[in-house]
Design a protein around this nucleic acid. Structure first.
Lengths: 246, 246
DNA sequence: ACAAAAGTGTTGTTCCTACACCCATGA
DNA sequence: TCATGGGTGTAGGAACAACACTTTTGT
């Protein structure tokens, strides 16, 4: 069976940039290509969009295939369509990025499509196609979003401490964050519900919090989010953070 | 001549949302469809992406065809790919939005592809396909961008007054803007070069300004734009602006 | 008692907000 | 002189930035 058109048509794919967070490290899920163009190279997971499939659903399907998890948080990133981005011919790819907490799910990183592996964000191999560029766009987007609204609750566990939240943001921003001012800002926003305290830690136990979606929705819906969430004085710019891999 | 593939492929188009500003009104360029699906309906200008063409170039080409202007400001908006968005079959469309000052160019609004016309933003007809949705996404994006950085210098003439700039933002935001606070903020940013004054107006002549791209680049490059450009107290929320069509 | 991380007090500064007021021009 | 916008002064409050300090746990 085959399909014939009057004019040439590009193939349509989705590529997924999957950000994972294990509490210490920002990671990216990559797969090793089994077949020819760039065989053996690492690449972003992705694949062809089915004829009757929503773009978003295609992304979710690929994500489920690679991680085993349904209904991940995804957002459309950008569409990449340079004529020569794939040596086999023209392939237009819609990029989606996903956020996932690696402790909550114990994500399998293997799949039908060859080897899959989580990489530390600062130890990425070189990638197939234009995937380094795509990844770059995704990371910049993540950094930008984090500046003007608190996101990434998909990356944190259900219950988390402010320190854990701060550690995540430090990794995304690439800078240490002023503890005092971060705490103040988060509290003032009022989108966290305070729960019980931690136990069994060798220091003063921190309060646990959970994300209050109601309050968050109010904030964004109520006309205006006049938040720059991460402000300038919050960042300790002399102290860069590596995506520490302890 | 024809092209045959093993699997079905969607057609790939670009659609352009062209925002125009004539000094008083926000407008949108639409074309009237000459052919069958939605014949006679108004639609966003757009068309197929050529086999060897960058997506962005396709958008620029369409824009030139419709407006006669090369090198307009464009930015990728979003990609729309619902399987049923076009009754002829699957068509995936990459949306681009453009900004253009209607006085500077005296834009022709006719084209080979049937009738083209500028519509007042608040007098839009119903549109073909899912173009109302696309337009909605574009307008929301424009509003969002304007919140956290001063954009739209493409919409203003080379030399403009602060009042003209404010009028533009009032139209985009849909609210009147507090004159004092807007003025203060714009001045503090330091991205405008002050020029001579207006002449021949029946009131105190305003200073003309031009956009200082250098300073603007410094601002954005220098790490952080901690600007919410349009702040809450700037807007007079009781006073909505229609996109006044005088 | 000590280390380690959690959490709070506070001060100077900048920015935002909401007013009121004066200025320069053409008719 | 009046109408019409252009442009400025300013005061109270909120938010930001940069400090230092106290608290609570396990070892």
């Amino acid at each position: 069976m085959s399909f014939t058109y009057k004019y040439p048509r590009p193939a349509l794919t989705v590529d997924c940039i999957i950000f994972g967070w294990d509490g210490q490290n920002l990671k990216i899920l990559l797969i090793q290509r089994a077949n020819d163009p760039f065989q053996g190279h690492w690449a972003l997971p992705g694949g062809f969009v089915e004829p009757e499939e929503e773009l978003r659903d295609a992304a979710l399907r690929e994500l489920e295939e690679e991680t085993g998890i349904k209904g991940l948080f995804v957002e459309q990133l950008f569409t990449f369509g340079s004529p020569d981005r794939d040596p086999r011919g023209r392939v237009v790819s819609v990029g989606y990025y996903a956020l996932i907490n690696l402790n909550e799910y114990e994500v399998k990183a293997s799949s039908d499509a060859g080897d899959a592996r989580w990489f530390f964000f600062d130890e990425l191999p070189s990638l197939a196609f234009d995937h380094e560029n795509i990844l770059d766009v995704a990371y910049k987007r993540l950094q930008a979003k984090v500046r003007y609204e608190p996101i990434g609750f998909e990356l944190l566990p259900k219950k988390f401490t402010i320190s854990q939240m701060r550690a995540l943001y430090e990794n995304i921003m690439g800078y240490e964050i002023n503890k005092r001012n971060f705490h103040t800002k988060v509290m003032k926003l009022g989108i966290l519900r305070q729960l019980e305290r931690q136990t069994d830690v060798a220091h003063r136990p921190a309060y646990l919090y959970e994300f209050d979606e109601e309050k968050y929705k109010e904030l964004t819906d109520s006309g205006f989010k006049d938040l720059l969430f991460i402000t300038e004085g919050m960042l300790l710019k002399n102290k860069k953070t590596t995506h520490s891999k302890n």
